[in-house]
Design a protein around this nucleic acid. Structure first.
Lengths: 339, 339
DNA sequence: CTGTTAGCGCATTCAT
DNA sequence: ATGAATGCGCTAACAG
């Protein structure tokens, strides 16, 4: 009688911790192998035995330990590591969404880390991810430190790293910034300030490059006094407010990302309460509701969700061996819109 | 000579896949145990041997397989599963940030899943997380289906589930909505429309409760014609635009979340181009830049990041056994601000 | 200090 | 169709 066997084997049960195949086997009166087979499809297990096993599993609240399973099968973990520089930025929320979309389709989960723009933390994060046997990494790099992480397939998003051969998805920062700036110049603006941390953030540097190029090709010179190396909304607000209080204020601002745009918009809206002339703003990246403010606005935008999806696609076809050996570089297009 | 041993043992090496302790041991000419000891601190290993081991590990690009390590040590995975209903919503970006903050402090990583407001997908997600041996779950529930997941410590965020005994962090939906609505009424509004999917989303229901309570205590009746069961920005826009075109339009709107607020603001801004009277809006949850639009705005806001952090704190002190047995319920305060 | 043995939870292989 | 032995990668416990 199975019941008797079950009773006999019950002594092997581990009471407190999570049940294992053995616990289920003991309760069902079968060998661990039968449990294993049942839980993974049930090939070569008699239906009635399967039922006994499943019932026992349910009663114990048994769940296959995927971790152990993967180890035994020498199988990858089904985990993708994603590191971003600022999880709180809605931009990266959309980005993560794009990655998750594609990951879910490919039956993977995402491990998210926030580097907070700190290269040391980024390294630690990626080290940790690698130790957890992630199958691949999608990284918005905070620094240049992750040079050596060649073990795990890596896709860089938003920013490239010099000297690191790796799949990369970039935004057309230079071209977009150039087009947006040209549009400001076309409106007659001659004194345009730049808001962005050119020294600290690679995308800001590239966007400045496009900005400067547009000025140059229109025969304009950039006044270094109008360079504001800000990277968050508060500092951007201060910089814009201060510069508008000068004797020769800029007539327009170029903002290198959505955080600096928010600060600039606040300062400009504040300013226009007391002034008739409203400075114009060109913003790289979209900000929700910005178009409704009545500030002359040029938006150089792209879809961060699409960017995340693209990065994930590149990662997965590299994982499946369908990608060429050489690292690939994709540029996401930038659209210039005016409000 | 170690070198000779290394050569001899090299036959055990697995060429292609990721290196293991044995590979490192073979190369360094020691036993796997010495590698293990070295990699986990180096207690009881001679410095020079340690160096040999580390060098070998570096040369092979060895990384400890944490998954196997945790299995052997019967240790938890260091993973927290987080399931949200809409990763693309900036609200949940902030929420995730709060969770990540606390998780990082506690040396854990977060596995993020997007249920897309789909109960079936949520169950699948949580099942998967459980199989991956997450230590705990933080869930913004999409449905009532996760009743049985009692194996893993669970913290519910934002929405409670009837009949599920579990730590829960809620927002003071009812009180906040009541206060915000009262403020509209105080301004003389009598016809106030409600934007929110009361049937589908528990928070919307609770916020409606506060809304209705405020109307009632002010002797007002709610016109069911002014109930719009919308849950995204586009539908909200349509509903507001349509209702403003009626013969007896509402003079104010109560929006139950930040997505519906965005749609409402767009519709109101569109409307005011042709009309002198601008309808007022009370928004549950903040939206960046909304305060600058010149629309009479009442914001019932809280800090989603703090909410995420609170949920994580509750999870961690439950994990550490410092929590009482009974499920705890925390309410995050809501602030009413006017613009 | 270092190596050997054994076993975490699971599943392949080879028995029966 | 089922079970026993073996081993995935790692390390505790015990030798020596």
């Amino acid at each position: 009688m199975p019941e008797i066997e079950a009773q006999m084997n019950l002594s092997h049960t581990n009471a407190s911790s999570t049940p294992t195949v053995r616990d289920v086997a003991a309760l069902a009166g079968v060998s661990p192998m039968t449990v294993s087979r049942t839980m993974s499809g049930g090939r070569n297990v008699r239906p009635d035995v399967q039922k006994r096993v499943r019932d026992a599993a349910d009663r114990l609240g048994y769940r296959t330990n995927q971790s152990a399973r993967n180890t035994r099968l020498r199988r990858p973990t089904g985990l993708i590591g994603v590191a971003v520089t600022n999880l709180g930025n809605p931009y990266y929320g959309q980005f993560a969404l794009g990655v998750e979309d594609v990951a879910a389709i490919n039956n993977r989960h995402i491990l998210i880390g926030n580097s907070r723009e700190d290269p040391a933390r980024e390294i630690q994060l990626l080290d940790d991810f690698a130790g957890r046997q992630v199958e691949g990494l999608i990284v918005v790099p905070a620094g240049n430190g992750l040079l050596s992480h060649s073990a795990v397939p890596l896709v860089l998003a938003t920013r490239a790293i010099e000297g690191l051969q790796s799949d990369t998805v970039l935004v057309d920062d230079v071209g977009g910034a150039e087009a947006g700036t040209a549009s400001l110049v076309g409106d007659g603006h001659r004194r345009i300030a730049f808001l962005g941390d050119v020294a600290g953030i690679p995308t800001a540097r590239r966007r400045f490059e496009g900005f400067a190029r547009a000025l140059h090709s229109n025969g304009l010179e950039f006044d270094q006094e109008l360079m504001f190396p800000v990277r968050d909304s508060g500092c951007s607000f201060d910089a814009v407010a201060k510069s508008l209080a000068r004797r020769d204020p800029p007539t327009a601002f170029f903002s290198a990302n959505n955080r600096t745009t928010v600060g600039a918009l606040r300062a400009i809206c504040e300013y226009r309460k007391s002034q008739t002339l409203v400075p114009a703003l060109a913003s790289f990246d979209d900000v929700e509701l910005a178009d409704l403010l009545g500030v002359p606005l040029t938006v150089m935008s792209h879809d961060p969700r699409a960017l995340g999806a693209q990065a994930a696609l590149m990662l997965f076809d590299r994982l499946s061996g369908e990608a060429p050996d050489e690292p690939r570089l994709v540029h996401m297009p930038v659209t210039v819109r005016r409000y």
